[in-house]
Design a protein around this nucleic acid. Structure first.
Lengths: 203, 203
DNA sequence: TGTACATCAGTGAACGCGCGTTCACTGATGTAC
DNA sequence: TGTACATCAGTGAACGCGCGTTCACTGATGTAC
């Protein structure tokens, strides 16, 4: 039986369990996660998740992998009609933040080394897939505008920028001290952020 | 008895419990936190933490408040000998990231709304204290270089940038796909990041 | 086509454990006289 | 100064609960003949 086999019994329980876990984390945060509750929501016995994922780290790692894959797909689709690296960079920023807001559970666990097995090859592979988009677009920006640009570090900074925005955006809405002028849509902030970085990166 | 009373019995248990909690989270991450284990490490009965903090949310909120206070103190000290807003901005970036690396438990929980009571007035107050430094330095940059600068949004972006760097830095060391060229000290990255933002913000 | 067997996804009872919470208590410190 | 009392930080036994894990099992599906 191949790893890509279709559902064997009573539907794709693998999928159902991951969806239940995502729903649970979306509602209660990672602190509210448990295999028992996931099983309950999926309508299966509490021993079923272990059968599929071994333990909670296994299940969460699978979800983290999907987080990267979802991001990869969203980016691939969004930049398809665009060739200019600078425009692509802005699009990626927008997509990164939008995706994180649409999948808050994914965003909440993807870099949590205490919950996820970051050494899992699937995690590494999917992460590189998503990260690769940003790295290659920054290489394009280097070629186009600034031969002296350190692409590796620029990629790290750009990724950090978007991840930070994702972490703080929900707090900006809630915390008065992160307030001030009207808070725009996350995409607007992401776009503004990307343009700001672009100005600096282009030298 | 005032809220600032000195230790009453057998030393400052309030302090000891917070230190134990910080040590625990530093070692195991927020997922490994429990009041029982904190009490065990502090060498007191397991009911003692509840006596001081009510529940785990209370204890973690206290630690989050200290996270902001520590950052405030570190920034205040670091910018004392410097008046130029642009230089101050770079210093703050460096201090933010350095402080986060030195106090990983603080950084891990301070924006975790599922663990911390962000509506607590002490949290709001301490947050504003730390955030205020950044906001006023950006107002200074606006006055000096770019009257059109939206200070509120610039502050949000700058804060996001540093928070993101803090989240990803440990992963940069561990994850091959965040690799590439040699990874410098966190301060170097923070400084580079700040200068990049500065170039964009100055218009 | 039908029957007999193999596979294995998912069950459900049982287990021991660590958790948070409660509560009557103890005993060290501070205060009144 | 000494004694008697009040306070309250911290104790420790007891509780019920939800957790992860184990394991013999069941029964639906796939396969061989």
């Amino acid at each position: 039986m191949s790893a890509l086999a279709k559902p064997y019994h009573r539907g794709d329980l693998d999928r159902t369990l991951k969806d239940a876990a995502v729903g649970l984390i979306t509602e209660l945060g990672p602190a509210g996660f448990s295999l028992r509750e996931v099983a309950r929501r999926a309508g299966v016995s509490h021993a079923a998740p272990a059968h599929h994922f071994g333990d909670s780290r296994g299940l969460l790692t699978s979800i983290a992998v999907e987080a990267f894959e979802t991001l990869d797909r969203a980016i691939t689709e969004a930049i398809a009609d665009c060739t200019d690296p600078r425009e692509r960079f802005v699009i990626m920023a927008r997509v990164y933040v939008r995706t994180g807001i649409d999948y808050p559970a994914h965003a909440a666990i993807v870099f949590r080394a205490d919950l996820v097995d970051c050494d899992d090859p699937r995690y590494q592979h999917a992460g590189l897939l998503a990260y690769g988009h940003l790295e290659s677009v920054l290489a394009g920006i280097r070629d186009l505008t600034n031969p002296a640009l350190d692409v590796s570090n620029a990629t790290r900074l750009a990724w950090s920028a978007m991840q930070g925005l994702l972490t703080l955006y929900p707090n900006m809405e809630r915390l008065s001290f992160l307030g001030g002028s009207e808070l725009g849509e996350p995409e607007q902030l992401a776009e503004r952020f990307a343009e700001l970085l672009l100005a600096g990166l282009a030298g």
